[in-house]
């Protein structure tokens, strides 16, 4: 793929592809048939290819809100495709794609005209900023886990609501069993917490050594990330030690995702009052 072709790939290309995939998936829930799924998968895969090409060409930094949101959306798009292929009968896309599209939209709102770079090591990955990147990647990994946990929690709440109301199983939006959703949630949290902890430690060291300019200990980003870690700690304690109903844990996971979004967006100049 030549650089000129890659340059023409925009947010709209993959956002619209994901949207079409979502609409087709919704169509499948009302009118069953193989065609919907195949067409939805084709659009989803096309969106992922365009998304990958965009990231490859523009190489957004995970240390900035724009890049981290875009990269997070990309990982979740991968998760969507994997889930749709492996859980063919479930309405996987109905849950994952809105989040992917939302993250792409949010990144677009925070975009500050990304530069079309050459295929070289980007500036942000070189020299002193290496640990900043490590920090960004660790937080990104944790963000993926938190996002998966958020999706699992949404599915759990919907499935539990169906059971509480004793609605007919399956329905328009077929979903995984509570047990399977719970396993997915647990694994996501188990992966996310160490990454978040490590990311937070690296960030703390960078802050204490004055490697990071503009941020300070009381900045919104630092505070929300710390709050996220505390929520996670509570979440893990309740999950493994508190025997709290799974529905409450799901609500707490959703709250964690909301804090994550604030933490990811917080570094942007708008959120920092234009300080950066």
């Amino acid at each position: 793929m030549s650089a000129s072709v890659l340059q023409n790939v925009t947010h709209s290309c993959f956002a619209l592809s994901y949207l079409c995939a979502l609409l087709l998936e919704l169509g499948r829930t009302f009118w069953p048939g193989k065609g919907w799924r195949v067409a939805g998968l084709a659009f989803g895969a096309a969106g992922l290819v365009a998304h990958s090409a965009f990231i490859l060409f523009h190489q957004p930094t995970p240390a900035a809100p724009y890049g981290s949101l875009l990269l997070l959306a990309w990982v979740l798009a991968l998760f969507y495709l994997y889930g749709t292929v492996h859980h063919a009968k479930q309405a996987w896309a109905v849950f994952v794609l809105p989040v992917v599209i939302g993250l792409v939209g949010l990144s677009l709102a925070l975009a500050t005209a990304p530069n079309a770079s050459e295929f070289t090591v980007p500036e942000w990955a070189a020299g002193d900023r290496f640990w900043g990147i490590v920090h960004g990647l660790l937080i990104l990994g944790a963000s993926v886990g938190i996002s998966v946990s958020f999706l699992a929690s949404l599915m759990y709440l919907l499935q539990a609501r169906r059971l509480r109301k004793k609605l007919a199983p399956g329905g328009a939006v077929p979903m995984l069993s509570l047990e399977r959703i719970e396993t997915m949630n647990r694994r996501a949290l188990n992966v996310a917490f160490p990454l978040l902890t490590a990311g937070l430690l690296v960030g703390t060291l960078l802050l204490s050594q004055g490697h990071v300019t503009g941020d300070n200990w009381l900045s919104l980003k630092v505070l929300t990330t710390a709050a996220l870690w505390v929520v996670f700690l509570v979440l893990l304690y309740l999950r493994y030690g508190g025997h709290v109903p799974a529905r409450r844990l799901a609500l707490l996971s959703i709250a964690a995702f909301a804090i994550l979004l604030v933490a990811l967006v917080a570094a942007h100049p708008f959120a920092e009052g234009g300080a950066k």
């Binding site: 007919a168 199983p169 399956g170 069993s177 509570l178």
Partner: peptide, 18 residues
């Protein structure tokens, strides 16, 4: 889906356990 009373139980149980 299952359409008998007894087999509908299987559908319900599969909503909880995998």
């Amino acid at each position: 889906g299952h359409v008998s009373v007894s087999s509908a139980a299987v559908d319900f149980v599969q909503q909880v356990f995998s």
